[in-house]
Amino acid sequence: MEVLSVDITVPLRSYTLDLAFDLEPATIALVGPSGAGKSTVLRAIAGLTRPSDGRIAVGDDVWFSSEQKIDRPPEERAVGLVFQEYALFPHMNVRRNVAYGGGGRVDELLTRLRIHHLGDARPGDLSGGERQRVALARALAREPRVLLLDEPLSALDAHTKVTVRGELRELLRELRLPTVLVTHDFEDAAVLADRVGVIVDGELVQLDTSDRLVANPASPFVASLTGANLLEGNARLNNGLAEVVLDDGATVFSTGAETGRVGVVIYPWEITVSRQRPDDSALNHVEGEITSLVTVENRVRVAIGRLTAETSTQSAENMGLKEGERVVASFKATATRLLPLA
């Protein structure tokens, strides 16, 4: 079992990229805001950007080591890098593009990625999804020991994206290669990767499975990235519970143990929506107007003031929720987490 091990420092214009991780044959997604240095990680592994310090190795094969003064050029590193815009060679047809990576398995790869019928087509004549499959086939033709995907879904329209994402997930499972993918979209990361690393200003702030990231975000940024509500306020202890006075004046109870300046994290699916204040065990009831209703596949995200609740489309229909309507959002104190902000 080959392990990709990365420990690099790359000085960038406004900060220094500094991160380390080991990756067995599995997929890791690096998520973060644009400009966080995500693509630089891929370029460094591929040999297109030279770190100032560190080590990159696959198994016993050292690709870069500042200590041993090793810096193998890109062509001597067995990486398959799929570029954000795919970077297909416009003057070659699909078959020749794929063969450029290595001629041995062209037919097998074209068939596997279901682009065999496009062999004679030029990249300019392909759709976004087809282009992505050509780029993948070309990268795999190189017989890579590590696969690198730079925003693999960003060049696709929303409609194509969902399908392509599913296919890509299957492919990555089959390949069993150490795979690093970069995305700004947490949902893509959660779907495609076994582990998700959040990069902010060149640093890996948290690396874990996506559900553990959602359940236990290390920082407010991670919490907001993963889709959680984040309400800011001041907490003090009251009868063993944290009483948080939010900046908008409302009060929320939490079983969290922090005091002082905090962020209250509540996941949308922990919040129930009702017309009247329910008589239940939930300590927190926030009344507000529905400002938006957004359907995401079979769920509806209901924005109530600064809170977002998530219900199934079925229950949203049953209740006949409408924008502008006043409702009560309820959630248990145990469903909240407190993150220190100061």
Binding site: A46, G47, L48, E75, L81, H91, R142
Partner: peptide
Amino acid sequence: IDQTLVDASRTLGAGQARTFWRIALPL
């Protein structure tokens, strides 16, 4: 020439010379 095409050629195993003949020159 789009630099990412040159980068792509290198990561696909082509050295500087092959990249020149097969990518830079035709484009």
